[in-house]
Amino acid sequence: MSLLQVTGLNKAFGGVKAVDGVDFTLGKGELLALIGPNGAGKSTTFNLVGGQLAPDSGSVRLAGQEIAGLSPRAIWRRDVGRTFQIAATFASLSVVENVQMALLSADRKVFAFWRRAAGHRRGDALALLERVGMGNQADRPCSALAYGDVKRVELAMALAHGPQLLLMDEPTAGMAPAERLALMALTRALAKERQMGVLFTEHSMDVVFGQADRVLVLVRGRLLAEGTPEAIQRDARVQQAYLGNGQILGRRRQ
């Protein structure tokens, strides 16, 4: 059984169908990229899965359980992690304290936030930071980090409650090419290691075609094509609708 099953998903705004009968699945350990031109409905689809929006109709099932229409927090409690286009960290706290705050939330100790997080599961927080390559910067303030490092901290925070599904909204926005490829290669390794499904939206085609296992292409709210990166790159419909110039850039990982 697939980890995530989306069936007949529909959402309209003022009579305009932003998402029109979208179906897809996502397996454990798989990276699935959701792409399309501006206005294609990818952000709406992404937010329907994450709970920021409720669908007009359709089903979103996670490990066999219906989650469509649940709040983002209720979905998070079902072991779904999320990162954002603009990294969501506490700039005034140290790197390790940011992860400790995420662990406090995972342990349902949200009302302990008024205390310093420094004493809470520091060893577990350090282990997460080591895994994302930030262990040597654990005690630095987040405000002093380069942006690419902030994104790694955010990833560690998203992993704090051991999600079975990770949603990544434009994860490499604002990053240099080498940084974004490194971040998504790390995400790919974590997905395989933890058997965690990853659904991500992305504008950088080098990231999409270099790291995704499969790609979904939306146009005007409908699923135009889905398949391996190689198949999507060769698809004439995608080339015409997505780029309009007969070519999709991007290089597959070796």
Results as ranks from 00 to 15, higher is better:
W76Y: 12
K11L: 14
W76I: 13
V132G: 05
G29V: 10
W114L: 14
K109C: 09
G50Q: 04
V80Y: 10
E66K: 10
L34V: 07
I75W: 07
P72I: 14
T45K: 06
G51Q: 07
F46H: 00
L31K: 08
M134P: 07
T89V: 15
V19L: 03
L26D: 00
I86S: 10
F46L: 00
G21V: 05
V96F: 04
V132N: 03
T45S: 15
V96K: 07
L126H: 06
A54G: 15
L31G: 07
L104A: 06
D56V: 04
T89P: 02
N136V: 04
G36I: 05
K28S: 15
G69T: 08
S105N: 15
G8T: 00
L103Q: 04
A12I: 05
A33T: 06
Q52P: 08
L48S: 06
G39Q: 04
F90G: 01
L26K: 00
P72M: 15
L70F: 07
D20K: 02
V110D: 09
F13E: 10
R131D: 12
G8Q: 00
L126A: 13
G119N: 05
Q85S: 13
S59N: 10
A102I: 03
S43W: 01
L48K: 02
E66M: 09
R82M: 12
I86D: 10
A127Y: 10
Q85T: 12
T25S: 12
L62H: 12
V110W: 05
L93N: 02
G21E: 02
V110S: 08
A33M: 10
G36V: 02
L126R: 12
I75V: 15
E30W: 00
H120V: 13
F90W: 09
L48C: 06
G14T: 14
L129R: 02
W114K: 12
I75M: 07
L70W: 06
F111I: 13
T89A: 09
E66Y: 09
E97S: 07
G133M: 09
Q137Y: 08
F24R: 00
A54E: 14
A138T: 01
V96Y: 07
M134F: 06
R122G: 05
L26C: 01
V110C: 03
R115F: 11
F24W: 03
A117Y: 00
T89H: 01
I75A: 09
V80I: 08
R82E: 09
A88G: 01
S59G: 14
W114Y: 13
L34A: 07
L126G: 08
D107Y: 11
A63F: 09
S71P: 09
D23A: 05
A54C: 11
R82Y: 11
G39C: 11
G27Y: 00
E130M: 08
